[in-house]
Simulated assay, not measured.
Amino acid sequence: MSSAIVPFVETEGDANFMSATSYYTGRNLMDRYQITSTTLCRWQQDPKLEFPEPVKLNGRNMWAAEDVHAWERKRATRRGAA
């Protein structure tokens, strides 16, 4: 099982603007958390979980790695406080 991050370079209007952002695919997230596609869909639909919103890249749902990592840190902090 691999939860490899997919690198992707975004360009925004200006040809001089480029930011390298890493993304997870749905399969990467399912492998990372050992969940099914149904669970991933449920996480997206449950506002209490505050799971990051995907972005469409080349017609595929992708999740920014920094958003996923921030979500993990936030959940770990909540569990530690409970």
Rank of each mutant, 00 (worst) to 15 (best):
A82V: 10
L40V: 09
K74R: 13
A64G: 09
T11S: 15
A81G: 13
E50N: 06
I5K: 15
E10R: 15
H69M: 06
Q45F: 05
R27F: 02
L40I: 01
E72R: 13
T36I: 00
W43F: 01
S3N: 13
R79C: 10
A70P: 12
R75M: 07
M30T: 10
Y33G: 12
R75V: 02
P7W: 10
F17D: 07
D67A: 06
Y24W: 01
G26N: 15
V55K: 08
Q45R: 05
Q44P: 02
F51A: 05
D67F: 14
E10N: 11
G80A: 15
H69D: 08
S22Q: 09
M1G: 14
G26M: 12
A76N: 03
Q44C: 09
C41K: 05
A65F: 03
E12Q: 14
K74M: 06
N61T: 05
V55I: 06
S19C: 03
N28L: 04
D31C: 02
P52Q: 08
T38S: 03
E50S: 04
I35L: 09
P47W: 03
H69V: 01
T11G: 15
I35M: 07
S2M: 15
T38G: 01
D14A: 14
A81D: 14
K74A: 06
S3C: 12
W43M: 09
N16G: 11
W43I: 03
L49W: 00
R73M: 13
P47M: 00
R75P: 01
L40P: 08
Q45K: 13
A82H: 06
T11Y: 10
R79S: 12
R32Q: 06
A64W: 09
W63R: 08
G80R: 15
R42E: 00
E12F: 10
V68E: 00
A15S: 13
D46I: 01
A76S: 03
Q44H: 07
F8Y: 15
T77A: 13
R32P: 01
F17W: 04
F17P: 02
T36M: 00
D67M: 02
T21P: 00
D46W: 01
D67I: 02
N61I: 02
R60A: 04
A64Q: 09
K56A: 01
N58I: 09
M62Q: 14
M30P: 00
Q34I: 12
W71R: 12
G80P: 07
L49I: 02
T77Y: 10
V6W: 13
E72M: 01
T21Y: 02
L29C: 06
S3T: 05
P47H: 00
Q45A: 06
M30A: 07
S22Y: 10
Q34N: 11
T36R: 02
D14T: 14
